[in-house]
Design a protein around this nucleic acid. Structure first.
Lengths: 360, 360
DNA sequence: CTGTTAGCGCATTCAG
DNA sequence: CTGAATGCGCTAACAG
C-alpha cells in the first residue's frame, strides 16, 4: 500500500471548510471526501465499490482520503439506492428469553453467509401489539433488509416485498414458510412424565387461546391423560395467557382451593416459574407437595428454585434453521421443505417428584 | 407521460399501477398512494405526519387509501431525510450470552421512552474484528440511529456524529461515557471465597491481556491472595483469552501436571465451564477434587454440571443504565455521572468445596 | 478514465 | 388548502 499522495499541486484549497471537515462534528459524507480528494462523488463511489475504470493513482489517492477522514458509506443511503442490502432482519416483539435464544441461533447461521443481522424490536409496545410485524415488515423490507424472520408473529398473512420466515407463529400458517417445534409431542412427553410419577390430579396452565402452539400443548395434555385413562378435570385447566401475571392468579386459585392438584403442567416456563413462586407463597414445597413441569427450557428455568423440569424446545436450532431457510429463499434457491417442525424432548431437573412416595 | 412505470429494473408485470397496487409485489410507496388518491405526494406526507393545512375530507380520503394499500413509511427514506429517527442502536460483536443479556436490560429501559431499539451484530466476523464498532457507528449514526450503545467495544476513541455509550469497554476509556461492573472487587470476592474454603493452591485462567476488565480481574485475584498472605505461584496463572478453546488447553496443562491446583478462578463463566469440562475428562470430580469459580453469571452457568459458583455482573442493569444514559445524552440532558460502575457479588452454587474436608 | 445527470422515498420549504 | 420544487447520501447510467 503506497501512499501516493499528490503534493498540493496548487489545488484550490481556498475552502477552509474542506480542511475543517476533518473535525467530523457532523457525519462524513461522500461529498466531503470528493471535495477533499479533488474528484467527483461518482469517482469516490466507484473506488469504494471497486468498479472498473479508475486509474490506480486516483484510486489509491481517494482511498487515502477516505482513510484519513474515516469515511464509511451510509447504510441508509445505500439501501435506498440499491435493491440488495445483504442484511437480514429478525423482528421480535421484545427482547425476552425466547427471542434472544432465537437470535443466538440466527447469529450462528449468518456466520460466513455474507449477510449481516439486524434485530428489530417493537419495544414491547402494547398499544399496537397486533400487527406490529406487518408494520415493521413494510417499513424495513425492500429498503433496509432483503428478508426477515418473524419471531412468534401474531399475523402471518403478510404481503411482503421479500421473503419472510416465521418462527412459532401464533396462527396456523399457510401463506409463509414456518419453523416450529413439535408442541403436541412435547406436551405429551411432559404430561406423561407426571403420570409416570403417579400423578393423576394434574392441572394445566394454558397459553393464549388464539395461538396454535398453545392449543397444541393443551391438546397434548389431554391426549396424554386420555391415553393413561385419566379423565380431565376441567376445573384444573386454567388460562395463563403466556403471561407470568395471569399465570400467578390462576395458580393462586388453583392451589388455594380444597382439592388442589398434585402436579401442574404449564404451557411455558415463564408461567411454570410463576406457579412455583405461588406455591412457595402458599407454603407448598416443590416438588414434595407439588410437581411442576414447564415448556420451552429457557435458560432461566435452570436458575429456578428448584430447577425446573421442562419440555425443551430447540430454540436456537429454530433460529438457525429460519435464517438458513431465509437465505435459500433470498438467493432464489428452492428449499426442500417450507414448513419445518423440530423435535422436543424432556429435560429432567428437580421440580417433579413421585406422588406421595420417594423422589423421582 | 408514463409515471407509474419504474425507469429501470422494469421486470415488473405490465399491469396498470392502479389495479396492480393491491398486489404489492413491490413495496408500496408514497407515490403510489398519491396516484391512487389523486393527490400529490406532499399532501400524502402531510396527512401522514399530521401537518396542518389539509382539509378534513382530503385527509380522511387519503387515510383510507393508505389503509387500503397497506402503506407504511419507509424507515430508510425517512431517516435519510430527517435528522432525528427515534431509534437507538445497540452494537454487538455477536449475539452471545453476555450481549443478549445486555439487550434484555436495554429493552427494559427503552419501554415507554418513545425510542425504538435496533440491535446490530457484526456477525462475529473475525477478519475485521478490531474496529468493527467504528465502522458500524459511521454507517448507522446520523442516518439510522440517534445514538448507540457499544457492547464490549475494542475501540473507544470513536469520533461519532451522535452520543455513544460503551458497556464494558476493552480499554480504559476516557473519551466516551461508560458502564462497567466492579471487576476488581468482584474478583476479590470470588478468590476470597476460595481462600475461605481453605484453598491455597489456586490457579487463575485470565482473560485477554489487552482488556482492562481482564486486567482488573487478575489484579483482584492477586490482591486477594496477597491479603491472605498466600504467595502467587506464577505457573498457576494461565491465559484463557476469554475463549473456551484457549481455556480448555490451559486447563488441560494445568490439571494434568503433578502439583495441580485444588481450585481455579476463571475470568469468565465460559472459561470456567471449559475448565469443568476438562476436569471431568481427566477424571477429576468437581467440586470434590477441584473447586471452580467463574465470572459473569451468564444464564448458562446455572445449567452446568455442577452449577457454577460465580461472580455476578449485573449485566441486565448495565444494559438498562446504558440506554438510560444514552437517552439523557440524546435529549440534551446532562447526566450526573458519565462513568458508572455497578457492583458485583458472589453467587454460590455447587462448583466449590472446602479443601479436603466437608462441603462448603 | 472521469464527471454530469438522474433518481431511490420521503419531508419541507415556498408558490399558487 | 394544495402542489411543484428541492435535497438527504448514494449509485448507475451516459457523456465527455
Amino acid at each position: 500500500m503506497v501512499q501516493t499522495v499528490p503534493p498540493d499541486g496548487g489545488d484550490d484549497r481556498d475552502e477552509s471548510a474542506a480542511s475543517a471537515s476533518r473535525q467530523a462534528s457532523r457525519r462524513v459524507t461522500m461529498q466531503q471526501v470528493a471535495v477533499e480528494a479533488g474528484v467527483s462523488v461518482s469517482t469516490v463511489s466507484k473506488v469504494i465499490n471497486g468498479r472498473y475504470g479508475i486509474s490506480v493513482a486516483t484510486a489509491s489517492h481517494v482511498s487515502g482520503v477516505i482513510e484519513r477522514l474515516g469515511y464509511e458509506t451510509s447504510l441508509v443511503a445505500r439501501s435506498l439506492r440499491n435493491q440488495r442490502t445483504n442484511v437480514i432482519g429478525v423482528l421480535v416483539a421484545d427482547f425476552e428469553p425466547f427471542s434472544t435464544e432465537v437470535l443466538k441461533g440466527a447469529a450462528d447461521a449468518i456466520r460466513g453467509s455474507g449477510f449481516e443481522l439486524v434485530a428489530y424490536s417493537a419495544g414491547g409496545r402494547v398499544d399496537e401489539h397486533v400487527g406490529w410485524e406487518r408494520r415493521y415488515l413494510s417499513r424495513l423490507m425492500g429498503t433496509l433488509v432483503d428478508g426477515a424472520v418473524l419471531v412468534t408473529p401474531t399475523v402471518t398473512e403478510v404481503d411482503s416485498d421479500g421473503p419472510v420466515v416465521a418462527i412459532d407463529p401464533h396462527t396456523g400458517s399457510t401463506t409463509i414458510p414456518t419453523i416450529t417445534a413439535h408442541n403436541l409431542q412435547g406436551a405429551r412427553l411432559g404430561v406423561r412424565h407426571l403420570l409416570d410419577l403417579g400423578h393423576t390430579r394434574i392441572a394445566m396452565v394454558t397459553g393464549r387461546e388464539d395461538l396454535v402452539s398453545a392449543q397444541l400443548r393443551e391438546q397434548g395434555f389431554r391426549e396424554a391423560l386420555a391415553e393413561a385413562g385419566v379423565a380431565v378435570d376441567e376445573s384444573l385447566v386454567v388460562p395463563g395467557a403466556f403471561e407470568a401475571e395471569v399465570a400467578r392468579e390462576a395458580a393462586m386459585a388453583l392451589l388455594a382451593r380444597p382439592g388442589r392438584p398434585t402436579a401442574v403442567f404449564a404451557a411455558s416456563d415463564q408461567m411454570a416459574l410463576a406457579v412455583i413462586e405461588v406455591a412457595h407463597e402458599l407454603g407448598l414445597a416443590v416438588p414434595t407437595d407439588l410437581s411442576v413441569v414447564g415448556f420451552d427450557n429457557i435458560p432461566e428455568s435452570a436458575l429456578a428454585d428448584p430447577p425446573l423440569t421442562t419440555v425443551r424446545q430447540p430454540i436456537r436450532d429454530m433460529g438457525h434453521d429460519a435464517v438458513a431457510l431465509l437465505i435459500d429463499l433470498i438467493e432464489g434457491r428452492e428449499p426442500a421443505d417450507l414448513h419445518r417442525t423440530l423435535g422436543t424432548d424432556l429435560v429432567l431437573r428437580r421440580s417433579t417428584h413421585a406422588l406421595g412416595g420417594m423422589p423421582s
